[in-house]
């Protein structure tokens, strides 16, 4: 395993948190109620905090003179290795919750394994993040149940969100070349090992929420290889605007 492999692996984990955090922060001041608005921006903040820890470490590992900000803001679309799920738009509250829950369960299982990484930095970040992600998962899972078991309209909308976003779940368990090398070295996680438990957990909750588990077997992929949906360009143009317009600006 080279330093490059490890850096790419760290990017791919952190990019999920970064892009989902960016999506959630679009809701700041636009949440359906004050409480959900605050909740979603709080989750965004946790995800950004985790991203910072990963990128600070990746910057340290790099031979180039990089900062966490360079990694977050100055890469090109193809260099972001987040899964397609996290870049999906805030279509409505049901989509936001389903996207969150689908990601939170995966994130939780991933971090639980990453806690055992042979790399002490990744171990520490995972331990810290796991406490936060357990809380995110509780929030999104509670809401999913509430929407499913709520009104006719909330039920219908959350079922549609589940059906539409289901196609992005399989990619969570894909491994690119860097992932494989880093997992084999005992530093990373073999994502495919999380799959069965993942589908068990989300299927149980979907049923509990009086909703139906989709039988779709066709899945979308690409993000882990840097091939994104049309939404990604818009996310990046907003996220990167300040650093591109005012290079090296700081708060």
């Amino acid at each position: 395993m080279t330093n490059e492999n490890l850096i790419h692996y760290i990017h791919s984990i952190a990019d999920n948190s970064l892009i989902l955090g960016q999506r959630l922060s679009e809701l700041c001041g636009h949440g359906p109620t004050l409480e959900t608005d605050i909740a979603m921006t709080n989750i965004a903040l946790d995800l950004f905090g985790q991203t910072r820890s990963y990128f600070q470490y990746a910057a340290e590992l790099s031979n180039e003179d990089l900062t966490e900000d360079d990694i977050a803001f100055l890469r090109k679309e193809r260099d972001y290795k987040n899964v397609l799920l996290v870049e999906q738009p805030n279509t409505d509250f049901a989509y936001i919750i389903v996207r969150q829950y689908f990601f939170d369960v995966y994130h939780y299982l991933l971090l639980k394994q990453l806690e055992n990484s042979k790399n002490v930095n990744l171990q520490n970040i995972a331990k810290k993040s796991l406490k936060e992600v357990a809380y995110h998962r509780r929030f999104s899972g509670d809401w999913l149940k509430r929407l499913g078991d709520g009104t006719e309209e909330s039920h219908e909308r959350v079922q549609k969100a589940i059906n539409d976003l289901w196609v992005y779940t399989d990619e969570l368990f894909h491994m690119n070349e860097d992932d494989k090398i880093v997992a084999n070295a005992g530093f990373g996680v073999d994502n495919s090992s999380l799959k069965d438990e993942y589908y068990q957990i989300i299927s149980d909750l979907i049923k509990q929420a009086t909703l139906e588990v989709p039988e779709i077997q066709y899945f979308q992929k690409g993000g882990k290889k840097g091939i994104h949906t049309e939404h990604m360009g818009y996310i990046l143009s907003e996220m990167q605007y300040m650093q591109l317009a005012y290079p090296n600006m700081k708060w």
């Binding site: 605050i38 709080n42 809380y135």
Partner: peptide, 13 residues
């Protein structure tokens, strides 16, 4: 409980 999340990450409302 009003909300599991409060004015900062460490608080609930």
């Amino acid at each position: 409980l009003v909300s599991q999340f409060g004015s900062t990450a460490c608080k609930a409302m």
